[in-house]
């Protein structure tokens, strides 16, 4: 019996190795975090979304199969940097200088701003209105518990505002420094949104995922997050740009992605690009 068992284990191991090496270099393996609708999310047991459609086009161009694998968002950049388990990362990843040091980014294909998700009946946070747009400035979040998805730009910004002062490594003054504001990390934004009114007061996440979550939860609303200027007229959000990243030096794949993105960002006669159409299509599915 024991011999049989060990034999079975060896067979399984060998199969695994054969499988591992046979698929070597053929498929394009893309890491993502499938909790970021409309860019990537699970529809049933399949990962779908804007990024998936973009990468499938890249696969067609290179005549290689594209395989999406779900992983923690915070692990994607490191996995792509190592290049051992995947070729590319497509997860609505914002271009930042720190990430640029580790991976190569494609041309940006979408511009987003950060949004704040809060309970509809939360009157403790003062909002401002400018040109008919209601928004929240960072200062209004002082003393609150802020929920974020680990390693997202929402987390990077909030961490900076809370912990930065000219005297430490950050080298600038954070808006919320010393205000007793709390930062709480979650695996994904939905989990953080579930905690609103319990362990957190607000959640900071990118625009479209915020709207996606709010459209599904009647008790929540979302507003853009602005940085205060000298006067109210100068209040503005920080725009960030999404791009797809590849392992450094993989120019063949990067060129193909850039080609596909350039094609897809071409505006048609109505001034709408294919990317925008995809975003609308996947946002529509939520309703």
């Amino acid at each position: 019996m024991k011999k049989l068992l060990s034999l079975a284990m060896v067979v399984v191991l060998l199969c695994g190795c054969v499988f591992a090496f046979s698929s070597c270099g053929k498929d394009i393996i893309v890491h993502t975090n499938a909790f970021f609708a409309p860019f990537e999310y699970y529809d049933g047991t399949e990962i779908v979304g804007v990024d998936v459609e973009i990468m499938n086009k890249v696969g067609e161009k290179l005549d290689r199969k594209v395989v999406f694998e779900n992983t923690e968002f915070s692990a994607i950049i490191d996995n792509v940097e190592g290049g051992k388990v995947c070729d590319a990362g497509a997860a609505g990843i914002t271009i930042t200088d720190e990430r640029k040091e580790k991976v190569d980014f494609s041309i940006p294909y979408y511009t987003s701003v950060q949004y704040v998700i809060l309970a509809t009946d939360d009157a403790s946070i003062t909002t401002k209105t400018k040109d008919g747009v209601e928004y929240i400035v960072w200062e209004a979040l002082a003393g609150k518990a802020i929920g974020v998805q680990t390693d997202t730009t929402g987390w990077i910004y909030t961490d900076g505002e809370i912990n930065a002062t000219v005297d430490n490594d950050y080298g600038y003054d954070g808006v919320l420094y010393g205000t007793d504001t709390e930062l709480k990390n979650f695996d994904n934004a939905q989990l953080a949104a579930d905690a609103i009114g319990k362990s957190v007061d607000v959640v900071i996440i990118d625009e479209l995922p915020a709207e996606f979550i709010v459209s599904k939860n009647s008790g929540l609303k979302c507003l853009p997050l602005y940085y205060s200027g000298e006067t109210d007229a100068d209040d503005a959000p920080v725009e960030e740009q999404y791009a797809i990243c590849v392992t450094k030096g993989n120019t063949e794949l990067l060129d193909a992605i850039n080609e596909v993105l350039t094609e897809m960002m071409q505006e048609d006669a109505d001034g709408v690009s294919e990317i925008e159409k995809l975003v609308m299509k996947h946002m529509g599915m939520s309703e």
């Binding site: 499938a34 909790f35 609708a37 999310y41 699970y42 529809d43 994904n188 934004a189 939905q190 989990l191 949104a193 579930d194 995922p209 996606f212 979550i213 599904k216 939860n217 599915m285 939520s286």
Partner: peptide, 10 residues
């Protein structure tokens, strides 16, 4: 529990 399905984890 994610956004496109039930949008609640509980």
């Amino acid at each position: 529990g994610s956004g496109n399905n039930m949008a609640s984890y509980i």
